[in-house]
Measured scan of single mutants.
Amino acid sequence: STVKVRLGHLEVTLHNVSEEDVRELRELWKNGADEEDLRRWLEEWKK
C-alpha cells in the first residue's frame, strides 16, 4: 500500500510499504532521528 508519512516538516510517500516499515520509521523519528538518519533509512529501504 502507499502511505504518506509526516515527520516534522518532512513528508514522505512510501509505495509498497508494510505497516511494520512505517512503524519502524516512526520509531526512529520518535527516538530523535534527524532527517539524515531518515534519508539513510529510506535509501536502505528502497534497495
Rank of each mutant, 00 (worst) to 15 (best):
G8P: 03
R23S: 09
R26V: 12
D34Q: 12
V22Q: 10
L42N: 00
L38Q: 01
E36P: 05
S18L: 08
L10G: 07
N16L: 05
R23Q: 11
L38P: 00
N16G: 12
K47V: 08
N16W: 05
D37A: 15
W45S: 03
K46F: 15
V3H: 03
R26K: 15
V12S: 01
E11L: 11
R26Y: 13
W45C: 04
D37Y: 08
L10F: 14
G8T: 04
E27V: 02
R39F: 11
D37T: 15
E20H: 11
S1P: 07
L10V: 13
L42F: 13
L28V: 03
H15Q: 08
K30Y: 12
K47W: 03
E11H: 09
E19I: 10
H15I: 09
W45Y: 12
E27S: 04
R23N: 15
D37E: 15
G32A: 05
K46Q: 13
K4T: 15
E20C: 05
R6S: 11
E20S: 13
L10P: 00
L28I: 11
R6V: 14
V17D: 00
H15N: 08
K47S: 11
V12W: 03
K30T: 12
E35A: 09
R23H: 12
K47Q: 11
N31L: 05
E35K: 05
W45Q: 08
E27P: 01
E11R: 06
R23L: 14
K46H: 14
G8Y: 02
R26N: 15
E27H: 04
S1V: 13
D21M: 14
L38A: 02
A33P: 06
E20R: 12
E24I: 15
V12H: 06
R26Q: 14
R23G: 07
N16M: 06
W41H: 01
H9F: 10
E43K: 06
D21A: 15
S18K: 09
E27L: 05
K4A: 07
E11Y: 06
V3G: 01
T2Y: 05
W41E: 00
T2I: 10
E35Y: 12
S18W: 03
S1W: 03
E27I: 03
E43V: 04
W41M: 02
V5T: 01
S18M: 07
H9I: 11
R40V: 09
L42Q: 01
L10S: 09
D21T: 09
E44V: 04
H15E: 08
N31I: 05
E27M: 04
G32P: 02
E20Y: 04
L38D: 00
G32M: 07
T2E: 06
T13V: 14
K30L: 14
H9Y: 11
K30A: 15
W41C: 02
N16V: 02
L25Y: 03
E11W: 10
R23P: 01
V5I: 15
E36F: 06
W41I: 03
L10M: 12
V5P: 00
E11G: 03
K46R: 13
K47H: 08
R26I: 15
K4E: 06
E35H: 07
S18H: 07
A33L: 06
L10I: 14
D21S: 12
R6I: 13
V12D: 01
L14Q: 00
N31P: 09
R40E: 08
R26P: 00
N31F: 03
